[in-house]
Design a protein around this nucleic acid. Structure first.
Length: 597
RNA sequence: GGUCCCAUAGUUCAAUGGAUAGAAUGUCAGAUUCCGGUUCUGAUGAUAUGGGUUCGAAUCCCGUUGGGACCA
């Protein structure tokens, strides 16, 4: 049981013993004491006044006295208005420190075969262009969430749904067919996803030119779009693909393979992976069957033109198209099919979709539709809805060529990390390969931390310059703190300082040490909060706080130079535990920490 | 037209309904015999706006303004 819980229980007992009232546990609030006040934990007594029928100060005194009598670890208490601040003894905190030190898994909940299963969908790219900065946020969030879910006792299945069919890929195919002259990734030396993306852009350019010519000859924009020969050809490709035309399917397979090979490289560089990948080309027809089944069951209805709809007006939404009049499917159809297959493949307890907030409405509908189709998790599926990524100059716009490519961005950051690291020259003795691994760790740590520290549901600004600035509230600052800690232990060994690996009791803790242990003790709470709130940002912000407190401690207190041996032992234990928690926290974000940098 | 989201120092971000709204960055001024100067300390500066709810509101509710997204 955590200290907070223990205090909370006692405080409830206190109200009962002192005032003869039973209180709802929501009324008893125990929190960490603000840093500018004396104390470790605070009981907020305002809500208890109606039971005590006394002034806040008197109520605080009553409860403080009771708590102290029941819990000898409380060294002192202080009442300020409706706040009862409790201070625990130094020995108590040293005990906490030792306990955390001895528990390798501290803060994490073990996963067993009977743990609940959470499936997390993230990434979900289209196969017509390479991944960009927006996808990076998606991937990092999805991957981090899966680690946080695992750390809080869930079996996790990471999944990806690849949108590999539809008009978008037909546009790339058509452009390649018409103007590609047989180009391949090998012949051009271009990464497959980038190559296909180039043809997608090429289609768009030719299409625009065609429209301009048609408009010049006197057509309106709408008429021009209708008469476009290029668009007609692309649609014809899609029709042939759906009909299973061998040549078309072959071209489709070839170009998709190029894209997958390219994506694999990007995912690997990013350090994310999946347990199971679904393809829309394999799920859309399942979805169509499900919709028709729903039509039979009477939960959907058909309009005169043959299209199939669902009526959600009684749920406060409107009517939604599920199948077009020509029988082709829409996004919703595919998502239904994918859900069905997943449900067949796994015994999912919780389904989480990491998808941008522009699809909030889509997921409200999907949730209701799945529920109507009888999926028992339909109603409580989680749409993990995150905000857009913008640049300091504004939004990314493909037309204006301001889209930041994922591969380019990572390469650039690795280059910067390499330059900075070489300047510092702390990697002597490392092979080129080892050093390169450290540069990559720093670059990816910087990127991941910068993106994940922001509340996911908010629109964020990604500043490339700031993200590779290794000062301030950044990943490298945290990695640096970790490296410095490891350096202490290397030095200890050199100096022949033997460390028993635990802190002796009976020591006086200074303020910085006390703060640090309190923060360490809060790690478990932070992880479970991050899981409950689906927010890696909580872990990131916590870790920054920890690193900052550690640096203050480090600045003020000698560690290896401390001559009082028990004190040195305690400080070394503190260093070790902080290093471990930084490493674990970074792991929860999907990032690594170097021993030197 | 309908629905949803957002608004905090110059800038980028924090703050389970709790105390004097915290950081980072920027600017200015300092510290360090030392275990890694990517450190530490101080100064500066913000809740868009008008109501309401209550012991207490950046946070919850209603209106206004501004920004974004989605649905036809």
């Amino acid at each position: 049981m955590t200290t907070e819980l223990q205090i909370k229980k006692l405080a409830m007992e206190a109200v009962h013993a002192l005032y003869g009232e039973t209180v709802d546990d929501k009324l008893v609030q125990v929190q960490m004491t603000r840093k500018d006040q004396d104390g470790d934990f605070t009981v907020v007594t305002f809500p208890l006044l109606k039971f005590s029928k006394k002034k806040p100060e008197e109520t605080g005194e009553d409860i403080g006295r009771y708590l102290q009598s029941m819990m000898p670890e409380i060294a002192s208490y202080q009442v300020i208005k409706g706040f009862l601040n409790l201070t625990l003894s130094h020995d108590y905190w040293i005990g906490v420190l030792n306990h955390i030190f001895s528990d390798e898994q501290y803060g994490f909940v073990p996963v067993t075969d009977s743990s609940p299963m959470m499936m997390i969908e993230y990434s979900s790219p289209n196969t017509n262009k390479p991944l960009h900065l927006g996808h990076i946020r998606n991937n990092l969030l999805g991957f981090s969430l899966s680690r946080i879910a695992h750390a809080t006792g869930n079996r996790v299945v990471k999944t990806n749904i690849v949108n590999d069919r539809g008009i978008h890929i037909c546009k790339s195919m058509l452009a390649w067919h018409k103007w590609g002259e047989g180009a391949t990734p090998e012949s051009t030396g271009t990464k497959g996803d980038h190559l296909v993306g180039e043809f997608y852009v090429m289609f768009d350019q030719h299409y625009k030119k065609e429209l301009a010519q048609l408009i010049e000859s006197g057509l309106t924009k709408e008429e021009a779009e209708k008469q476009s020969a290029l668009m007609a050809e692309a649609r014809e490709l899609l029709r042939k693909w759906e009909a299973g035309d061998q040549q078309v399917v072959q071209m489709w397979e070839m170009m998709n393979q190029w894209v997958y090979a390219g994506f694999d490289v990007t995912y690997k560089a990013m350090g994310v992976d999946f347990d199971k990948i679904y393809y829309e080309s394999q799920t859309y027809s399942v979805g169509r069957d499900m919709v028709l089944e729903g039509l039979d069951k009477g939960v959907f209805y058909r309009k005169e033109d043959g299209s199939v709809w669902v009526d959600l007006t009684s749920d406060g939404l409107d009517e939604k198209l599920l199948l077009r009049s020509d029988g082709t499917s829409v996004y919703m159809t595919q998502d239904i099919g994918t859900a069905k297959l997943r449900f067949d493949d796994y015994s999912i307890d919780k389904m989480v979709y990491v998808v941008g907030n522009e699809q909030d409405y889509h997921f409200k509908v999907l949730s209701l539709v799945l529920d109507k189709l009888g999926f028992n998790w339909g109603k409580d599926l989680v749409h993990f809805s995150y905000g857009m990524v913008e640049l300091p100059e504004g939004k990314m716009k493909s037309r204006e060529g301001t889209v930041v490519d994922a591969d380019d961005l990572m390469a650039e950051m690795i280059k910067t990390a390499r330059d900075m690291s070489r300047e510092l020259g702390k990697l002597e003795g490392y092979s080129d390969e080892e050093a390169e691994q450290v540069y990559r760790m720093i670059a990816l740590g910087a990127l991941k931390y910068f993106i994940l520290k922001v509340d996911p549901r908010k629109t964020m600004t990604f500043n490339p310059r700031e993200s590779i600035d290794f000062n301030g509230n950044t990943g490298p600052f945290i990695q640096y703190t970790h490296a410095r800690i490891q350096s202490i232990f290397r030095k200890a060994e050199e100096k022949g300082i033997v460390w028993k690996g635990a802190a002796p009791s009976g020591l006086e803790l200074n303020e910085k040490e006390n703060n640090l242990i309190r923060t360490i003790a809060n790690f478990g709470n932070v992880v479970s909060e991050a899981s409950a709130m689906y927010s890696p940002a909580l872990v990131a912000n916590y870790m920054y706080e920890l690193a900052k407190e550690y640096n203050q401690f480090y600045h003020d207190s000698p560690i290896l130079f401390e001559e009082n041996e028990p004190l040195r032992e305690m400080r070394l234990t503190l260093c070790k535990v902080v290093g471990n928690i930084i490493r674990k926290s970074m792991w929860l974000l999907g990032a690594d920490v170097p021993d030197r940098m």
